[in-house]
Each structure stands twice: as structure tokens, then as C-alpha cells.
Simulated scan of single mutants.
Amino acid sequence: MDKVLMSHGGGGSMMQSFISEIFIEKFNNEYLSQMEDAALLPGKTVFTTDSFVVKPLFFPGGDIGRLSVCGTVNDISMRGAKPLFLSASFIIEEGFPVDDIKRIVNSMEDTANEAGVQIVTGDTKVVEKNSADGIFINTAGIGILPDGASVSIKNGKPGDVVIVSGTIGDHGMAVMGAREGIDFDPPLLSDVSPLNKMVEKLMALRDAVKILRDPTRGGVAEVLYEIAGMSNVGIKIYEDKLPVKENVKSACSMLGIDYLHLANEGKLVCVVDKDFAYKALEIMKDDKYGKDAAIIGEIDDSGLVTIETIYGTNRIVDRPIGELLPRIC
């Protein structure tokens, strides 16, 4: 590899190899090696960071401001932690409209208030015209792990149940539609949402909640592969149990896209002890962002990620190599 490609940032297998070979090898330590959405530090402190370069900046159902807050809040929540404080840093291109900055900042304020977090520090840089494609945002976040929580991507065991908190692929297809001029009937909105309050309710089940993961770049398929690899297990899902909107299915069929590869920004994948699966599902469905939650499969000892199709056949789920659409988040 001589040069960086767009697929190296797309969330699939190329990105995972790139991170391992370039960054993990040099920065490796006991916290980074956890390889979670957020690092668990001493004192039950959870810390994460993320950068947002979505195109377009404003898309059906959200914008880069709401996305930047939700993305960081959700990464903290995927450790079972309660997010508290965020930073926000802006790289702004010379000539960018001030009214658009105000609109983005207002969206961040509204989303932070919804999530119950505070933006407490930040930074602003301005670069020459044509250097930043408008605006890039970096956020970092700190949260606290509650007593009894032991969420980790390494916790999966055969017999555990896999749940997704709602319809798959809404964000990826909404952004694709906005970028490519595709009209959906009914209109399709991004699912970008803060999930911390749903997770807080789930954590009442304590260590019955094994794994939480938000299927952003690379979609549900990439998350399933990460869980299988880090927990050294297999996963079987069922096509007829996957919650997918009909217009997303139709668009994927027309474009030759697997909706399991589409990015989501307001959904989570939960692996839970089978004895608590229906209680976890009930908790999700009682939350406004989880009304379409569904049990989609279970963990086994096959070492494979497979799907039982609507025809009753089984096949291996394709692992994404890179993001279907660059600059999705």
C-alpha cells in the first residue's frame, strides 16, 4: 500500500487492516487494545472521539451538527456508559456561510439538550478556500460506567441472542438519495438519533447485556463480523426477521446494494443473554427510537456469519470491504 484510498476510511475490512497496520502497531496500549467504540479508563471513565465529514452537510432527517453529537454520545453508550461531556472542534473553509454555521450549531445545541449532555470545550480553525469542503467537525466525549455494567465486544457466547433496535439502512440510503437526487415515496429520513437514554434503560438488565454496537460505517454486516471475530464465535441471522423499510429494500434491489452494508446513525445491535432477550426487546420497543426493534438471530460456535434466507437456504453474509458511499458520516 503506497497511498491512502477512500475505502481505507469506509468501515469495512480494508479500514480494519489499515488501522491495525498503521495505528495500532505504534500506539498500542492496554486501553487502545480494548478495540471498543470507546475506551474504558481508570475510575470507570469512558472516553471516545470521532470526526464528521458527511456530504451533503444537510440531509433528510439531520445534518452534520446533529450527527456529530449523536455519533459521540452513541459511542460512549455502546460501552453501557452514561455520556456527560463533549468537546466540539470545527475546521471551517474560508467563505463558508455564517448562517449555515449558526444552523449547524443550533442543531448541535438541540441534540445535546435532547441527550442530556454538555459541550464544555472546543476549538475553531479556518483553512483556505477549497481546503475543507465546507466544514469538518471533531467531537470527543466522556462518560461514566454504571455499577454492574460489563459491556464488551468480547463477551459473546453461543446461545446469546442478537437484537437490532430498528430499521436497517435508513441513514445510508437517505444520504445517498440526497447526494444522487433519488426521490423516495414515502420520503426516507436519516435515523440519526441519540441512543443513550435507551441504553440507560437496557442497563437495568446489568450483565445480561453482553455487547452493544452501533452499526455505522459498514452497517450491520460489519458489526456482526467484528463481534464474531472479537468474541471468537459465529452468528446466524434470519432474513425474514430483519426490520427494513420497503423503500430501502426497493432502492437496494434497484442499485444492487446489500442493506446490511448500509450505514445507520440511530440504531444499535445488542447481544443479550437468551433468558433476558424478550425483556431487552420490550425495553427497546418502549423507547421512541426503538419501536421497530427485532430479534434477528443468535450466536453459535460455527465461527461464521451466516443468514438464513427467506427461501430457507443458508449463506455466508458478505463482509463489506469499504463504504458503499464515501463521506457518509
Score class of each variant (00 low, 15 high):
Asp37Leu: 00
Asp37Arg: 00
Ala38Met: 05
Ala38Asp: 11
Leu41Ser: 04
Gly43Pro: 09
Thr45Ser: 11
Val46Gly: 01
Phe47Ser: 12
Phe47Ile: 04
Asp50Thr: 13
Ser51Leu: 08
Phe52His: 15
Phe52Gln: 07
Val53Gln: 14
Val54Leu: 00
Pro56Arg: 03
Leu57Glu: 10
Phe59Gln: 05
Phe59Ser: 08
Pro60Val: 04
Pro60Gln: 08
Gly62Thr: 07
Gly62Val: 07
Ile64Tyr: 05
Ile64Arg: 12
Gly65Arg: 09
Gly65Cys: 06
Leu67Lys: 14
Leu67Phe: 10
Ser68Tyr: 04
Ser68Phe: 05
Cys70Gly: 08
Gly71Cys: 05
Thr72Asn: 14
Val73His: 09
Val73Gln: 13
Asp75Cys: 08
Asp75Gln: 05
Ser77Arg: 07
Arg79Lys: 13
Gly80Pro: 02
Gly80Asn: 06
Gly80Arg: 04
Gly80Ser: 06
Leu84Ile: 14
Phe85Gln: 11
Leu86Cys: 12
Leu86Phe: 01
Ala88Ile: 14
Ala88Cys: 09
Ile91Arg: 01
Gly95Asp: 06
Phe96Cys: 05
Ile101Ser: 15
Lys102Arg: 11
Lys102Leu: 06
Lys102Trp: 03
Ile104Leu: 08
Ile104Met: 11
Asn106Arg: 13
Asn106Ser: 14
Met108Ala: 11
Glu109Cys: 14
Glu109Trp: 08
Glu109Ser: 15
Ala112Ser: 13
Glu114Lys: 10
Gly116Phe: 03
Gln118Glu: 15
Gln118Leu: 15
Gln118Trp: 06
Val120Gly: 10
Val120Trp: 03
Val120His: 04
Asp123Arg: 08
Thr124Tyr: 13
Lys125Gly: 03
Val126Ile: 15
Val127Phe: 10
Val127Pro: 01
Val127Ile: 14
Glu128Ile: 13
Lys129Val: 15
Lys129Pro: 15
Lys129Gly: 11
Asn130Val: 03
Asp133Ala: 14
Gly134Asp: 02
Phe136Asp: 12
Ile137Gly: 02
Ile137Gln: 11
Asn138Cys: 09
Thr139Arg: 08
Ala140Trp: 02
Ala140Arg: 12
Ala140Gln: 12
Ala140Met: 09
Gly141Cys: 14
Gly143Thr: 07
Ile144Gly: 07
Leu145Pro: 02
Gly148Trp: 00
Val151Arg: 00
Val151Asp: 03
Ser152Ala: 13
Ser152Thr: 11
Ser152Cys: 07
Ile153Ser: 13
Lys154Val: 06
Asn155Leu: 10
Asn155Cys: 10
Lys157Thr: 11
Pro158Tyr: 08
Pro158Arg: 14
